[in-house]
Every structure is written in C-alpha cells, then in structure tokens.
Computed example of a mutant assay.
Amino acid sequence: MARPPRFDTDQILDAAVRLAASAGPAGVTMSAVAQAIGAPSGSMYHRFPGRTALLAEVWLRTAERFQEGYVAALGSAPDPRAAARAAARHVVSWSRAHLREASLLLYGAEEFGRSDWSEQHKERADLGNQRVFGSLGSLAEALGAVDPKDHERVVLALIDLPLSVIRRHLRAGQPLPSHAEDLAEECAAALLLTITRPVAAGSERLRQGRSAGAPG
C-alpha cells in the first residue's frame, strides 16, 4: 500500500502564503516552498505542474476565502446602509485576522501571473469577481445608485477606501490600529450618504463583474 503524502495541498499553500507575505510573489518558487516545508523539490510537481499553477492556486485560495465573507457581509442586513457598513468593516477585520493573506492580496492577481494561468484558473477568478460585483450591484440598487458616478462611489466606499485603511500598515509590517474598523466604516458611511436618489432598475455596470479594483 502506498504511503499517504507527507504534506497536503493546504500545507504547501500555507507555506506559499508565508513566502508571498514576506518576499512578494517573486519569493514563491517551487524550490522555496519545498524548502520551507522540508519536502524534496521534486515532490512539489506531484501537486502542481509548475510555478504558474502554484501561484494561481495560492492566489485563488486566498481571494476566495476573502470573498466568501465579503459577499456574506454585503447581504448581511435588510438595511443596505447597515450592510455597506458591515462590508467595509469586514475588509479590515478579515485582514486583521489574516495578516499574511491580506498582504498577499494587496499585490493583485496580475502580479501572481494571471496572464499565464490556465483557462480553468482564469474562470475561477472571473467567477469570484462576478460574484463580488453582482453583490455590490444589488447593494447599489438598494442604496438608490442610478448613474456611473454613484456606482463608482459604491466601489470607492466598499473596496478602495477600506483597502487604503489597511494598505500602509500592512506594507510597513505594522499591526493594524484598533480603530481601523471604525475608521473604514465611518468613511464608507459618510461617502454613501450622498446617494439619495430613488432606486433605479438595473445595475448592469457593476453586475457585469468588473475585475479592476476587486480583491480577486
């Protein structure tokens, strides 16, 4: 009977996350990950056909874990403004609980070699982005967003702004301040107060699944 593998896929990807957080995407190589977990370099190729697949998997696993909680936050309350505040807080609270993963996501998929990914990996990334922007589109409708400026305001308030709260600290290797969640929530809520028009049918601009700016 064949022996079970000593290291499972999650252990390998966990090591890749640590390397990416400390040295960026360039630090994630097959040999570096193997060395980090004490495995023969050749054993890595039993799990991944090459470095491109490794980079895709470490990015996608991290992005999908973030997106799961973020989408849940966007639909967490009947009041769209309460849901928006929860989503802004989630970006910070998830990052606080997963500092290495959050540092990884700051690089963006392209820096993890997205252009060379397999079609299957690209489809996974696109589906995740579409899910996020579909939820943002529904929230934008509930808030009353009716024009491109309003839709950009929603993206700014719930993606770009919370990321800006954490980016400087993560890049400097500093802990997030205790007030970071409150700051992200307050700023997002203030920005969204300017959306006051009646709800309009359709939010195709966001529902199309824009990929730019979304974690994933």
Rank of each mutant, 00 (worst) to 15 (best):
D116F: 09
E123T: 15
R61Q: 07
S31T: 12
Q120R: 09
E68C: 14
A102Y: 08
R61T: 06
T62V: 06
A53S: 10
A82P: 10
P78T: 10
D79W: 09
A77G: 09
R85F: 13
S115I: 08
S118I: 02
A56Y: 01
G38L: 05
A53L: 02
G50N: 11
F48T: 00
H121R: 01
R96V: 13
S31H: 11
A84S: 08
R89C: 15
G75E: 13
V91P: 14
R65H: 12
W117L: 04
F66L: 06
E64W: 09
R114A: 13
S95C: 08
T52K: 00
D79N: 09
R114F: 13
L105K: 00
R85T: 15
A83N: 05
Q67D: 14
A97L: 08
V71M: 05
H121N: 02
D116G: 13
L106T: 10
A56I: 03
L105A: 04
S43Q: 03
F112E: 00
S76L: 07
M44P: 08
P78Q: 05
P40I: 06
L74K: 02
R61F: 06
G113S: 07
P78F: 14
S93E: 15
L99T: 14
Y107F: 15
L104S: 01
D79L: 09
L104V: 07
S41Y: 08
P80F: 11
P78N: 08
A97G: 14
A102T: 09
R61V: 07
H121F: 05
S76D: 12
V91Y: 13
A53I: 05
E110C: 13
G42K: 05
M30P: 10
D79M: 04
H121P: 03
A83I: 08
H98W: 07
G108C: 08
F112A: 01
Y45F: 15
S95Q: 01
R114W: 12
G38C: 06
T29D: 04
R96E: 12
Q67S: 15
W59T: 03
H121L: 00
M30E: 01
W117K: 02
P40C: 05
Y45A: 03
A56F: 00
E64S: 13
Q67C: 15
W117H: 05
F66G: 03
A56L: 03
P78M: 02
E101S: 13
W59R: 00
E119D: 12
G38D: 04
R65V: 08
A73G: 05
Y70E: 05
H46A: 11
G42T: 10
E57D: 06
V71E: 07
G42M: 10
G75R: 06
T52V: 14
M30D: 04
R81N: 12
A73C: 04
R85N: 11
E111Y: 13
A84R: 02
S41C: 10
M44D: 02
W59N: 03
A36R: 00
A73K: 00
H121Y: 04
